[in-house]
């Protein structure tokens, strides 16, 4: 089948100081990934087209972008999912560096700000694993799936309007530790999330949940963190 692939272009170096779109008409299989089409453009039409990608099957989180208006991983969307008119644009809310490459530093800074690591130096005397029940492990299973692709955070209207908001991905990663019964720093994390740029900035638009390529219930995770902030109870 023939596909019209319309791609956002911006290159600070070659006179494309104004963002614009290039359209390529490509021969494609319905089961091709959008990423495959972009590789085809780069290989045969314009080598200057720039985007990030690595694993190409939805686990590394490199190629989050807007595809027909929705945040998606280009390697997880097939042509048959989106039809033969495809528009690809960079994520919103982060500075565009070149074409589909945005500045990820603010995103990772927000991630790092919520203490995304287990705090607990006590280990069993026999040196073996700490015990954790299947249900306790299950409690935070959903939020361990996050691949830090930024699809959720850059779909969030609160983040668009206030870039200092830590954003859904950071809260998801805080959730992963707050609800891990092995962790001892929930209090400190909750203090960070209780601040002005923390969890209360969430207005439950649900864009994040729809955007997540790992199908994490992001809005629910944020709601659970808010619940703890209100009640002081981790359940």
């Amino acid at each position: 089948m023939q596909v019209d692939l319309r791609i956002f272009r911006y290159n600070p170096e070659n006179g494309r100081h104004k963002p614009s779109f290039d359209t390529y008409t490509l021969e494609a299989d319905p089961t091709d990934r959008v990423l495959d089409l972009m590789e085809q453009v780069k290989a045969y039409h314009d080598g200057t087209l720039s985007f990030r990608r690595s694993c190409a099957h939805g686990v590394c989180g490199s190629d989050a972008m807007r595809i027909n208006g929705f945040n998606r991983l280009a390697c997880k969307v097939l042509v048959q999912d989106v039809g033969n008119k495809i528009t690809v644009e960079p994520l919103l809310g982060l500075r565009v560096i070149k074409d589909l490459i945005v500045d990820m530093e603010p995103f990772f800074e927000n991630f790092r700000s919520v203490m995304p690591f287990l705090v607990n130096d006590d280990v069993p005397a026999d040196g073996k694993e700490r015990l954790q029940s299947i249900s306790a492990r299950e409690r935070f299973d959903d939020t361990t799936k996050c691949i830090l692709c930024a699809a959720c955070t850059t779909s969030c209207p609160s983040f668009w309007s206030d870039g200092n908001y830590v954003g859904p991905a950071a809260i998801v990663n805080a959730h992963r530790f707050i609800f891990d019964d092995r962790d001892k720093a929930a209090g400190e994390r909750l203090e960070i999330l209780a601040e002005q740029e923390g969890a209360w900035r969430c207005r439950t638009a649900f864009n994040c949940t729809e955007a997540c390529p790992r199908e994490i219930h992001v809005t629910q995770a944020i709601a659970e963190v808010k619940q703890v902030l209100m009640t002081g109870q981790i359940k």
């Binding site: 690591f117 280990v123 073996k128 694993e129 015990l131 029940s133 299947i134 935070f140 361990t144 891990d180």
Partner: peptide
């Protein structure tokens, strides 16, 4: 065991 101590969320057996 060290990875578990670092926080790795391994799946668990019935006895944890």
């Amino acid at each position: 065991y060290e990875l578990e101590h670092m926080g790795l969320p391994f799946s668990r057996t019935d006895d944890g």
